[in-house]
Structure formats: C-alpha cells, structure tokens
Design a binder for these strands. Structure first.
Lengths: 356, 356
DNA sequence: CTGAAAGCGCTTACAG
DNA sequence: CTGAAAGCGCTTACAG
C-alpha cells in the first residue's frame, strides 16, 4: 500500500485498518498467546499488506533492550588490528542476525581501552559485549564485570575466570607442537609467541615450557620471542637465532600463528636454510584463508583450530546471556588438532645437543 | 551521584535537580543559542555530576535519526569474505565515532544481497549505508537508489555513476603496470584479475588492454584470468600458463592484488622459474599488513594505494550526506603510485616474441 | 531566555 | 480474548 520511500507503516495504521486497538495488534505481532487465532491472522495479513516493520527505536525505548551487540576490538593508536579478528566479523554478524540482533563494531585503542565500553553502556545502545584478544589483567574485563554488563570473551584473561568465554586450549596446542618436535629428535626448539601482554601468549609459553621440561630440555629466555610487529619482528628474531647470536641456533621453531611462521620462513630462506630439511617449523593455524598452513612452501605442520568456528558459539552465548538463558557462565575450551606436514623432520645428526 | 550499574540519569533528573524545565535542559545540552550562558553552565555541571548520557533510543524515536551507519559486506554463502574488506572496518568505525556515529556491520550473501538492506531500512535502524566491492550492475545499488536511501560506495559499479563514491583508478593502475613491463621489453604479459563479476576487474582489464594495444601487442583471452578462489586458482592459472598449455608462456604477470601474486609466485617457484629473473611480476598493493608487496621474496614491484586511506573519506562522505551537507554527489578517484622492485627485470633475450 | 504540552511508536500493567 | 491509558526519554513547535 505505501509508496516506496514514503512514510513507514506503524502499528497505528494496522489498528486503524482493522478496527482493533494498538494493544491487540502489538500482542498479535509479538506472539502473545491470549490473542485469538483469527485476530492474529488478520493482523499478520494487514502487517504484510502495509509492509509493516516495527520501529526499533520505539521498541528499544520502551523495552530498554536494543537488540544490538557490540564487538569491541583492540587496536594500537594507528588502528593496526590483529588480522585474525576480522576472520570472525562476518560469521558473528550472520549468526547474530539469525537471532534478530545487529552487530556494532567498535575499536578500543590502547590509549583508553575502556572508553568505548563506557560510552556504549551509558548511551544504552547495547545489550551486551563481545570482546577478544584479552591482555593479562585486561582493563575492559574488569570494567564490564564491575558494571555488571553482559559480555562474552573470546579467550580468557586469567586462570579460573568467572565469566562466559570461548577459548582455544593454547597451552595444550603449544605443548603438542613442542612434543612433536621433541619426538622427531629436536633438542633446541625456539618459541615464536604472541605479544607478551596477551593472555594467550602466557598459555602458549606454559605449554611449550611444560614439554621442554618434561623432556629435560633447556628453553632459554633468549629463544622465546614475543614479536610486536608480526612478520618483521619474527623474521628478525629468526635471523638472529639462526645466525647464532644468542647461542647455538635452534633446529626448530614453534610459531603461534601462520603470519609468524611466514616471517620465520623468510628469515630461514634468507639464511640459506631449507625448511623441513635443515630447519623444522610448526605453526598454529587459525585457518585464515589467505595464510593457511597447507599452502606454505613447503606445507606447514600445524596445530589447527579454525577461528571461524568460534562465531556460532560466541553469538549463541551472548544472546543466551542477554536473554537470561544462561544460569551459570558457559565456558568452552576447544582443542587444536595436530597435522604433520613437510615442514618438520628429524634434525641434522650433528645438531642434537640441547641448550644448557 | 548514581550508583554503578544503577538506573541511568535522565534529562528529568537534571531538570528536577536544577528546578528547570526539561525543555531548557534539552536545549542547553544540545547547544541551542537561546539558552543563557549561566543556565547552560549549570546544566552542563549537573549533567556531569549525574553522569548523564542521552538515551539514544529516545533520541532516535523522536528525531527519526539513529546515528548508526551500516557497512554491508558481500559474502559468498559460506561467509567467505574478501580479506581486503576488513582492512577498513577499524578505520571506518573510529572515524565514524569522531562524528558520534556507530557502525553496524552486516553481511549480504550472494543468495539475496538486497535482503539486509531492506531490513535495515525498514526497521529504521540506519541513517545511511556504506557499500563496497560492487559487481557490475550491482542489485544493492539499484535498490538503494530506488529507495532514495543515503549511501556511499567504495568503488563504482558502472561508468558515470550518479551517487557519491570513493574509488581507486583501477584502469590507470593496470595500465601503469603493463606499461612498466612493456618498457622493460616484455611482450607476453598475462593478467591475473579479480572475479569477472566485479566492477573493478572490468577497469583493470580495460587498462591492461589499452597498454597492450598501444604497444601493438596481443593479449589473448586465455592469458587473462579471473580467479574465483584467490590463491589456489591464481596458482593453477600461472602453472598452466607457464607450462605452455595455452601457447607460448608469458614472461610477466600483472596481478590485481598481492594474494594473487602470492599464488603466481608459488606456481612460478614450483615450475622452477625465478621471479625477477626468468619471470617478472607486478602486483597491485593495497598495503594489507600481512601481505605487503615489499615483504615478498623477492620484493614485488607494485602499484600501491593503501586501502586504509579510504576510511576517513568514506566516513566523512556518508556523514556529510546524512547531515545534508552534500549538495551534489561527491565523487573521489585516487591514483596508485608505481614502485619498481626486484620482481621485475627485462625478459630473457630469446623470449621477446609477442603473442599473435 | 524559559516552560507547558504534545508527540515520536511502541509495550505493558490494569481492567473488563 | 480485547481495549483504554500510562509511560519509556527525549525533541520541538508554540506561547509567553
């Protein structure tokens, strides 16, 4: 009935058309049980005919619920964002839409990570928050906990959290990788980890150290890197390590991600080492389409856990939390699967002396 | 004054505290000129003290403006998204926030690209749209034009558009790349383009063909690829081309992106060709942090235009459009800069016969 | 310069 | 099963 671009139909238009009260129309549209089947059918037909869509702002004002969830990303001042983050935006948006929610994306810079949370919370634009890449003692989490705001974390920011989260078992993944190399005979294994402030990096480190210690192997601090700029710093570290600057060079690297592995591979090539021959390399593979472990040359042995698989659980969890259908915090830990490929082999026979 | 997590202060609380009408409070807070300086100061102080933040839903309901902009991304059914897209999300969000706007991210699948637009428009959740990666004859654009909805396009979907857009001069970029190779002496230059449905790919093709034709060189269709799956298909095409399957192999490739170039480089290596020696390679570089032309091995000659630089213009344009401060559609075309690096050189002397 | 009043489009006790 | 009325928190003619 209404013209394209003309004024939108309201609940009042439907009530006028049918000679019903707006109360009944509202109830019919919202599936209240006390409405008669016939009335409901008439209302629904009229709504269709008038191309009625509820005005979300009005609904929000009266219910206090916005049906909007915010994803708050961490970024440096220059808006450098972990590319991993993006892998999940599309999936989150789609899954939230299935539950009739919109996704607002915000960026929290390191300068004041809490500012956007405070603003969104105060303006009542948001029903709940999705956070990721937590730092150890993350200020955003402390703020949301104190404010009593619903949120779900992709990751964990400390042991024994009391909030809902979805996380990879990073400790186990690093342990598996180191153990695989140890089984192949490697004794000097370097770790190229995430930024040291990040919570997941602490887990990786613990898993790596557990494997090394269980095998009675040394793991000097100098051979554990926390690159700030992913590829550049990883390459620089690998070049220094392979050059012998910090002691006997490692025969293998465990990398926390495929971009890090790309940096290490570049440095190894530049140093004239052949991966899968002179040097072994294992990465954690988040299944980023543009940097998959299997597409490396040679293909990378990897612990794998597609980031994208986090989307549905995260969307479901935040919706359930907002809807009051989560009595106790749901906490999900998934495990990576290890796949050996051509980037790992036994070390050269003369290179099997451990550090320390 | 108010407790953390307690009820939020409203304009009524301020008016009660100061003995002013809500009308005056509203006017003072919104910078109306007729409010006395003293009153304004008192109101502002009270707002601060009560930690007042306007309820956006109420404001939206009465003004009909949501202060939310939607970024609608294209995706395939499986939610594969062009990684390029993500490069701009953080920047857009930050720049929109400077203008007090939130960014909603939606995904439009190929199955029904218009559905999310219709929904957002009808629910009055959105003041305007940001679209990108247009296809030729993009249905989303036709819909928004017909609906009279404010939008800005990152790209162009046809020649002589009537809407505001920000776009790279793709035709010129491809022409520059092909011309650089021709100047080096190459005669058989293949083009690895974007998906053929995408508008920018038509521009690239036109620029490449213009350069080839101006030099009197053939450019057989068989040597123009439109990979669907970026790296895999690019590698497959390059392998076939270098293997001589379609005729005399090219001595050079122009790639529409660095991920495409990565696929070509992989195939070249697998075929035993040395890039920058046997084979020349030029890519367009969007300055994606994880795949920068300068970080390739060898570093890639490239036409460069950082995607991220689109964020501020796009955010400004959509805000100005919504605010009625754009009388005629603002249309911005930027040019790429060409930087030669080690991936380009003269072709082998015996390989200078043109196609056809 | 300030205020009383209407209204944006919904939802939801309350009453029948 | 249905309706009249109040109200969510703002903005904005209109009046003074």
């Amino acid at each position: 009935m209404r013209l394209a671009g003309g004024p939108l139909a309201t609940i009042k238009d439907i009530s006028a058309l049918l000679g019903l009260s707006v109360t009944t129309v509202s109830r019919a549209l919202n599936g209240f049980p006390e409405v008669s089947a016939e009335t409901r059918a008439r209302v629904e037909a009229a709504a269709r005919e008038l191309d009625y869509t509820p005005n979300q702002s009005a609904r929000r004002l009266v219910t206090g619920r916005s049906n909007i969830v915010a994803l708050v990303l961490r970024a440096t001042q220059s808006l450098e964002i972990d590319p991993y983050v993006y892998e999940i935006v599309a999936g989150l948006s789609a899954h939230l839409l299935e539950r009739s929610r919109d996704l607002i994306v915000h960026v929290a810079t390191d300068a004041d990570p809490v500012a956007p949370l405070r603003r969104l919370l105060a303006s009542q634009t948001i029903d709940g928050f999705l956070l990721n890449t937590p730092e150890i003692g993350d200020a955003r989490i402390a703020f949301l906990v104190a404010a009593g705001a619903p949120f779900v974390l992709h990751g964990r920011h400390a042991p024994d959290p009391t909030y809902p989260f979805y996380d990879l078992d990073n400790r186990e993944a690093a342990r598996m990788a180191a153990e695989a190399l140890i089984r192949l005979g490697h004794r000097r294994i370097a770790l190229v980890n995430g930024r040291s402030a990040l919570a997941f990096a602490a887990e990786r480190r613990a898993g790596y150290l557990a494997a090394m210690q269980a095998a009675g192997l040394g793991a000097p601090e100098a051979f554990i890197a926390h690159p700030e700029a992913i590829q550049t710093d990883a390459a620089r570290f690998a070049a220094a390590a392979l050059g012998g600057a910090m002691g006997p060079p490692p025969t293998a690297f465990v990398c926390a991600s495929t971009p890090l592995a790309a940096g290490v591979a570049r440095a190894a090539r530049a140093a004239g080492r052949k991966i899968g021959d002179d040097i072994s390399l294992i990465a954690h593979d988040d299944a980023l389409p543009h940097l998959r472990a299997a597409d490396f040359d040679p293909p990378l042995s990897a612990t794998r856990a597609p980031l994208r698989e986090a989307c549905l659980p995260l969307a479901t969890m935040i919706c359930d939390l907002i809807d009051g259908r989560m009595e106790i915090p749901r906490q999900v830990v998934v495990r990576a699967a290890y796949t050996p490929r051509a980037s790992t082999a036994a070390p050269p026979a003369e290179e099997t002396a451990p550090w320390r």
